[in-house]
Simulated assay, not measured.
Amino acid sequence: MARVTTTVTRRLRPPDGYHFSATLRSLLVVRHDPCGRLADGEFWLSARTPDGPASLHLTRVGAELAATGHGPGAQWIVARADAIAGLRDELGDFPELAARHPLIARLARTFSGVRFPATGRLFHRLIRAVLEQKVTGIEAHRAYRAMVKHFGEPAPGPAGLLLPPDPAAVAATPYWTFHPFGVEQRRTQALLRCAVAATRLESCADSAEATRRLTAIPGIGAWTAAEVVRTTYGDPDAVSVGDFHIPNTVAWALAGEPRGTDARMLELLAPYAGHRGRVCELLAAGGIRAPKFGPRMPIRSFARF
C-alpha cells in the first residue's frame, strides 16, 4: 500500500522588524541538528505531534512567512507555526520595564525583532537540556547528535531530517547504550525517567505546570526546567537558576559586579518580573559577558571512561 503524503500550507504575517534567524536559532543545536535546519532564510523542524510525525518548513515570501507542513502531523504543526515562529510572543509592558536600565533599553531596541518561539513539544527539548547538564556545549551537542542518529527515524518531507527520539523507545533502552554517546549514568538515568513520564509531561497546560512536573523528577532541577519551558511554551520569565555563567553576566550588566550568585541574579532581575528570561536572552544576544577569571571547563569524552 502506498504511503500517503500530507502537505499543508499557511501564510503568516510577522511584525515589522521581525528577525527570522535570531528567533528560530534557539530551536536547533548549533552547526548541525539532525532534526532541523536554518540557512538562507529557510527553517526546517521535525516533530512528533499528537497526530503523528511531521516536518515544518518556514520561509520568507516578501513580507510574509510561508509555513508548510509535511506528514501525518502536518495540520497540527502548521496550526502551531505562528507560535513556533515566535509570533505569539507579546512584549506587553516590557518596553517600559526595559527603559529602567540604559543597557537593557538599548538591547531591547537593537533586538526588538527577536521573539520567543513556542514549539508545544516538550520531550525533544528536554533531551537537549538533560544532555547539557554540567558539561560543555560541545560535549552535549555531540551526545545529542549521536542519540538522535541512534534512534533515527526519517522525518516526513524532502529535507532529509530525522525525527526526535520516540520517548517509548528511549524508556526501553538500557542505560549502557548511551555510554558511547558520551553520556554517563547520572544523566542517562534522568533522561530515562523523563522518557517514562513523557506522555504526562507533554499534556501540561502551561509553563508553570510543566515546571512543577519536571522538577518533581529526580535529576531535573530548576535550570533544566527553565531551559525547556523557554522554548516549549515561549516563557519569557524563565530564568536558568543554577547556570555557571548567567548570574555573573546579570550581576556585571545590571550592577557592575564581576561575580554574582543565583540569589543576587534574581534580586537584580526582580524589576523585570514577567520578562526576566527575556532580559537574560538580551544580554546573551548582545554579547555581554562578565570578566573571566580562572581556567575554562575542559572538554571531556565520557565514552572513553
Score class of each variant (00 low, 15 high):
Leu161Tyr: 07
Glu202Ala: 01
Leu254Thr: 11
Glu267Ala: 14
Leu28Val: 10
Thr119Leu: 11
Asp206Gly: 13
Asp237Ala: 09
Glu281Trp: 05
Asp262Ala: 03
Leu131Ala: 05
Ile217Ser: 01
Gln185Trp: 04
His57Met: 08
Ala22Ile: 06
Asp82Tyr: 00
Phe94Cys: 06
Val250Asn: 12
Val8Lys: 08
Ile127Leu: 13
Glu42Thr: 15
Leu283Glu: 07
Ala284His: 12
Asp262His: 10
Asp89Thr: 01
Arg128Pro: 00
Ala85Cys: 04
Ala22Ser: 15
Ala273Cys: 00
Leu87Phe: 07
Gly62Lys: 12
His275Asn: 04
His150Gln: 11
His150Ala: 13
Ala169Gln: 15
Leu163Val: 07
Asp89Ala: 04
Val148Met: 02
Ala210Met: 01
Arg37Glu: 14
Ala81Thr: 11
Val114Asp: 01
Ala303Cys: 05
Arg289Pro: 02
Val61Met: 03
Val29Ala: 10
Trp76Phe: 13
Thr119Ser: 15
Pro154Phe: 00
Ala79Leu: 11
Gln185Ile: 08
Ser26Cys: 14
Trp176Phe: 14
Trp44Cys: 11
Val250His: 11
Thr199Cys: 05
Gln185Ala: 14
Thr7Ile: 15
Pro154Asp: 07
Arg193Trp: 08
Arg304Tyr: 13
Gln185Asp: 10
Phe181Tyr: 12
Thr6Ser: 09
Gly157Asp: 00
Leu97Ser: 02
